[in-house]
Every structure is written in C-alpha cells, then in structure tokens.
Amino acid sequence: MDESRRNFLKCSTVGVAGLGLAVPVATAIGKALTTETLPGHLSAKRWALVVDIAKCQSPDVQHACVEACHQIHNVPNIEDKHHEVKWIWKQTYTEAFPDQVHEYTEDRLKDAPVLVLCNHCERPPCVRVCPTQATFKRADGIVMMDMHRCIGCRYCIAACPYGARSFNWKDPVPHIKNVHANFPTRCKGVVEKCNLCAERLAQGLAPACVEAANRVAGPDAMVFGDLGQPDSNVARALRTRHTIRRKPSLGTAPHVFYVV
C-alpha cells in the first residue's frame, strides 16, 4: 500500500471531515493497496503442459480429467450441443490435428480421442480481439479471463482456432450439479474457458486435469511445469520426446504439447 492510501486510512479514522477531504485523493490515486501472493504459490516464467496422447486415451482417464476440471470450476453440464460449455473435452486426433493427418495416418491415431483444452498460446488471438481486455495474457503465459469485464461480444470465440471458448447462452447455474463454493459460477452472457487452474497454482497445487490424469493413468500422462527453466520436467519432456502442437501453421504458438 502506498503512503497516500495509508494516510487516507488514518485520516478516515479521524472523522467524517477527514473522509470528505481525503476521499477524492485516494480514489484518484487508484490501485494502492498492499497485496501479496499466497504462501506456497507456484510461479513460473512460462507455464506449459505436455499431454501424452497414448496414456490419456482411455475413457477412464479422460472422464476423470474432465470431471475434475468441470467440478471444481462450476462448469455447467448442458446436454444441448448448441449451448454446451466446456473447459477440457475430447476430440478425435483427426479433428484436433487437422494439418497432421493424411489419407494414410496410422489407425491407432486416426480416430483416437485426444484431450483438448485452451492452449495458452504465446500469441493468443483471443487476447488481441477482446475489446475490453477481459481476456489477457499473464506474464507467466496463462491466458486468462476477467469475468467482471466480459461483455459477451464473442469476438474471442470467433478468433480462437481451437474452439476452446464457450459462451453462456443461458444462465448456467441450474445446470451445475454441485456448486463448488470456492469458485464463482458464471452468469448468462459471458464467455469462459480453461484458466490453467490459476486459482490452484496460487495455492501451490497443480492443475486439476494434471492431477487427475496422473492419478488414473500413472505418472507422466500429463506433465506440467515451467518451460522457462531448462531443467524442469516439461522442458526435459519436450527435449527428449517427439511432441506436436495443434495447428502450428497459424502461428499462435500453443503451450499445450502432445506426445504422439
């Protein structure tokens, strides 16, 4: 907290007269509060996620990941495909990697279900088009939404080449089975998407899908970490294994990688 706000707070306890004078000053100064990160929070230069397609292929694993994510983030379960909201879901390899497949793509991959989510791009088109900066990219690479600012224009949905964004066509709350009190729901008329579990990272926990995948499919089904550190597990995984990105030709530089 900077000095002027401290002074203001002191003034305000003196009395109403103090309030009247100090108030315009304090509001004009704007953000001046002292804040900290939570103890034990995880930080990184550049978060990245490596998904092992083969290990994350079974319905059990995929179900566990989707459930874990959607449960803690109050993602509604809406049957109607037109109104569906999703943060992480499955698509066939052919759908997810249209520029990697050809007529003779091997059978094991062609129709294989792949877990897909927001790619937390290095150059996110959704951030560029957002007229209110409701979608923004954090210094650590997470492409995040400030729901308070979303006006529901859906430019980002049009801009995202991965279909990672969902619009709340109607009030989602009646479609949430158990509302999780630790995380806000959304209201009708806003767009939402994966936030790479920013709220869990802040508490020192790995993303929910990573935790679920590694619990059900065994270690390294998903590897999550800091790409900015050469000796981190993701950096090592990317160095030693053959990985692909979704639609690399678009130049968005996704930071969710797939081990084929």
């Binding site: 907290m1 953000k31 509060l33 002292t34 804040t35 900290e36 990160t37 939570l38 103890p39 929070h41 923004f136 954090r138 995040m144 400030d146 729901m147 308070h148 920013a198 802040a202």
Partner: peptide, 12 residues
Amino acid sequence: DAAVRDGKRMYV
C-alpha cells in the same frame, strides 16, 4: 483486480 489481474490473493 489484484486477485484476477495480478494473481495477488493476499491482502495486507
């Protein structure tokens, strides 16, 4: 703003 925008979730 602090929590969402800056990832600072502790208020002093």
